[in-house]
Design a protein around this nucleic acid. Structure first.
Lengths: 153, 153
DNA sequence: TATTGTTATACTCTATAACTATA
DNA sequence: TATAGTTATAGAGTATAACAATA
């Protein structure tokens, strides 16, 4: 082993490795969903809509930890792809409500399958205990830290 | 608890949580280095130069997992900030060699300290065993998979 | 006044590809 | 021809901020 430098190296931090692995896993996933014509951010928005629909852009912004402007842009792309539709909120003249189109609703399970496949590709041969331990650590880390993606808008 | 859906949720994948935590840690670090006027990618380039200097842009591109074009742009920014200098490679008329300026060399330890602080902020109170286990898992994961390109930080 | 959503603007990160100057 | 580096272009991702419509 090399003598410890007085200046920390890039690889001496957990954050570095976390990002290293995360980037690879996410980029591989991005390539998979790209084949279906969507980006990862678009998948996330659509998956949220499957759970709760219709949903206001501002609600989505909260769930996804993005600004309203960013969600607006993302939603526009999905509308252009005919995967999402926007309608006026009957209860509030200012509001919009977003829903999946039939095509969008049909695509979500396919994207979810790709997410499953991606996870299996990278972690499938992991000892189930190790997988569980890691998943547990990460979720508890988020819980403990109260990490929230809440951009100030 | 809700009935399990037939469509995998966002949070059922290790990749999702990895990214969730990684994004928070990296964004916190980005905010820290931003106060010193540099981005995370710039820090990574500079840290590489501290280890090996002078270094050709193409060599850096390999080390950092980026294209030559991307490195060129990054290096230009650092030159504009007077943190890096580019010189002609005396051994090859096509080549450039990049070095840290005195200001750049002085900044690297400060940035490294911020990286240390960031890691401590997020993982400092972690059980040493857990920290070691996680670090071990991630480095071995990279090793086992032969993952190559380096992420930013 | 406060809130919802849109739009304009800006910047990082990164890729591809065309181009120039050597080798 | 092959390689080093630059530059042009593009697009995702995301932020801030100004704005219009409505509450």
């Amino acid at each position: 082993m090399a003598v410890q430098s007085s200046v920390s190296g890039l690889d001496s931090h957990l954050g570095y490795w976390l990002r290293y692995v995360s980037n690879h896993v996410s980029q591989a996933f991005a390539r998979k969903v790209e084949a279906r014509g969507v980006t990862v951010a678009e998948w996330v928005l659509m998956r949220h809509l499957l759970d709760e629909e219709p949903l206001a852009p501002s609600r989505l912004a909260e769930h996804m930890g993005m600004t309203r402007g960013a969600v607006s842009k993302l939603a526009n792309r999905l509308v252009a792809k005919s995967l999402v539709v926007a309608a006026a909120n009957p209860a509030d003249g200012r509001g919009q409500i977003l829903s999946l189109t039939p095509a969008g609703r049909a695509l979500v399970p396919e994207l979810a399958a790709l997410a499953d496949a991606n996870d299996a590709e990278f972690f499938g041969d992991l000892d189930p205990d190790a997988y569980a331990t890691l998943l547990d650590f990460l979720t508890q880390f988020v819980e403990r830290r109260g990490l929230k993606s809440e951009p100030v808008d």
